[in-house]
Design a protein around this nucleic acid. Sequence first.
DNA 1: TACAAAAATGTAATGATTACAATATTATAT
DNA 2: ATATAATATTGTAATCATTACATTTTTGTA
Lengths: 142, 142
Amino acid sequence: MINTQEQITKILKDKEIAPSYTRIKIYDYLAKDKIHPTVDEIFIDLVKLFPTLSKTTVYNSLKLFIEKGLVRSVNLHDNKMRYELVRSSHGHFKCDTCSKIYDITMEININLPKELEGTIIDDYHHLLIGTCSNCLNKENSN
Amino acid sequence: MINTQEQITKILKDKEIAPSYTRIKIYDYLAKDKIHPTVDEIFIDLVKLFPTLSKTTVYNSLKLFIEKGLVRSVNLHDNKMRYELVRSSHGHFKCDTCSKIYDITMEININLPKELEGTIIDDYHHLLIGTCSNCLNKENSN
DNA sequence: TACAAAAATGTAATGATTACAATATTATAT
DNA sequence: ATATAATATTGTAATCATTACATTTTTGTA
């Protein structure tokens, strides 16, 4: 456990989120899980812990976390949303072969077109898709 | 019309796509449409032109176009895929207020983590989200 | 013109997400 | 501690995008 229950409680309170048991568990799951889980993955794992959990609650909680700036959605072009805790700016690399997702850091220089001068950028999402070196090595050794 | 029917026929044939009436119309739609349409938008507009069109055909055609490298999917984090013709590398900016989508050029330096050395990148998607200057000006003038 | 291959269609199924009303839990004032 | 109001959670049904698949239509070729 990266954060103790007390730490998570504080994090939620600081964002004006009532630190219910469910929300603490969902936050904790995201803090431990580095694979950008879908709602289904979160639900399937957490419902083992407390069988009364509802998938709707997972949706509601994530929506709230996003509104309060704790969580970001991650979209890997596979028809389902994924979620991660907001942390320092990074992009994602998805291996098309093994489906693994990697966090990557990247420097970006944006040239906004003239019609966009003065625009405010609140958020960004960078996704690279390819074949990871692990999978390339396996291919070569066949 | 940016491309004549003959030009589109040639483009499709060059990619080994049989240039059927339907495919030509879908390609033509993407060539004219700069707003990264969804399947629904393509279907609604084209079915006016030939009412026998089926939405499944739109899906099938786009899938084929993507396989042949003519089309890319664009995901704006709104639970539906969008499509655009493959053209020179660019990202997208979505205005959260007016929902307008802009194409943007950007320079990107990627620092792949050590575990990703040797990785092959086939494709990338860059999405910025914010408020466009038009919407900011409207806000200010209130 | 006939026939085989390919394209298009229409319906039903799937899967993610949302809407919403009902229930349970929590926080607050007394 | 208790009552009450506010909030959180739940479960079901609805919605919407996408896919599967069998059937029909169109196309290309002999």
